[in-house]
Design a protein around this nucleic acid. Structure first.
Length: 303
DNA sequence: TAAGTCACAAACCGTCTCTC
DNA sequence: GAGAGACGGTTTGTGACTTA
């Protein structure tokens, strides 16, 4: 089954790379034997970054941001920004390949002092909805490593953490990593190590406060000084206000969106499953991008 | 204040039914 | 009979709110 799914994903990537990325937030262009394990090449990578002599011309790096909402916000405000997402280039932006990893290293080294990294690593294999597949739990955040997609997800997280850890050595940059509350990403050892090295803070917020179509409780982890300013608390009154807003938006749409499908199992237990528009809910809203930008500018002035 | 309750959530797989 | 699509089942953690 796994091999069949892998072949289908591969075919999608070869013939319609952008489509593949739209549908699959977790993907790679390589077979498993070719995957790049950054942790095994620390000396080589460290030297690569140490010897970087290119320009420093970037203010913001929008990592794993296919929609580019963060980068667009920075550009609209007159700052330079770049995106890095496999959906934009399945060869040079594949973090599971050496080429893709080095490309992210180069982009990272282009950041100015006080540059901003905003990243939302793929969470499909980390969240509650796919628990039955990834089998992650409190004492085993790495999950079922017999599963191909779990291994892919784990290596992506490890490589991303290595990248930020290395970047932190040579550039004074700030970063924010976003994950849904139910994600196990921040419980993985590589992310715990990163949090310790980069003196990170983790806060809880709700995307509905930033014009999102769902309430979406979210964790933000990072070293941006003002990150706590993104904290939002969902009160009962807020919840009702947002529900009315969601209903109004849906009513105005020609084709209403289905993010989740709720059902009732048996007589008492409720169920929830992803709907066909669930992937759209991963996109950041412009309001969320502006909120980060505002805090970043403040932090820059205090630098 | 602590314990319990409630609402919610960036999938995936196997099986069944329908259509051709 | 093959393929497509619908549908049901499975799983846990977080944080606000309620109650004792």
């Amino acid at each position: 089954m796994e091999s069949r799914q892998w072949i289908l994903t591969w075919l999608l990537i070869i013939f319609h790379p952008l489509e593949a990325a739209k549908e699959e937030d977790l993907s790679t262009s390589l077979s498993e034997g070719q995957w790049f394990h950054a942790e095994r090449h620390m000396e080589e990578l460290d030297q690569y970054l140490r010897e970087y002599s290119g320009v420093q011309d970037l203010s913001c790096l929008d990592v794993f941001g296919y929609s580019g909402t963060i980068a667009k916000c920075w550009r609209q405000k007159g700052w330079s920004a770049e995106q890095y997402d496999i959906g934009l280039n399945h060869r040079s932006n594949d973090l599971l390949s050496k080429r893709g990893f080095l490309q992210l290293c180069r982009l990272g080294m282009r950041l100015i002092a006080g540059g901003m990294v905003v990243a939302g690593p793929p969470c499909a294999m980390n969240i509650f909805l796919s628990t039955s597949v990834h089998r992650r739990h409190e004492l085993g955040p790495e999950g079922d490593v017999e599963n191909f997609r779990v291994r892919m997800s784990n290596l992506l997280a490890h490589n991303f953490a290595v990248w930020l850890e290395l970047l932190n050595r040579y550039r004074k940059v700030w970063f924010i990593i976003e994950q849904p509350c139910s994600s196990y990403l921040f419980k993985m050892n590589c992310m715990l190590a990163l949090a310790a090295v980069a003196c990170c803070t983790k806060i809880t917020t709700w995307m509905a406060f930033f014009q999102h179509d769902m309430l979406k409780p979210t964790h933000l982890m990072g070293n941006l000084p003002g990150i706590k300013g993104l904290t939002r608390v969902m009160r009962k009154a807020d919840r009702e206000k947002f529900k009315k807003r969601f209903e109004l938006r849906q009513a105005k749409r020609k084709s209403p969106r289905t993010y989740v499908v709720k059902g009732v199992k048996g007589q008492s237990k409720k169920t929830v499953q992803g709907g066909k528009h669930l992937c759209l809910s991963a996109n950041y809203t412009p309001a969320f991008a502006r909120a980060i930008f505002k805090i970043w500018v403040q932090s820059l002035q205090d630098l």
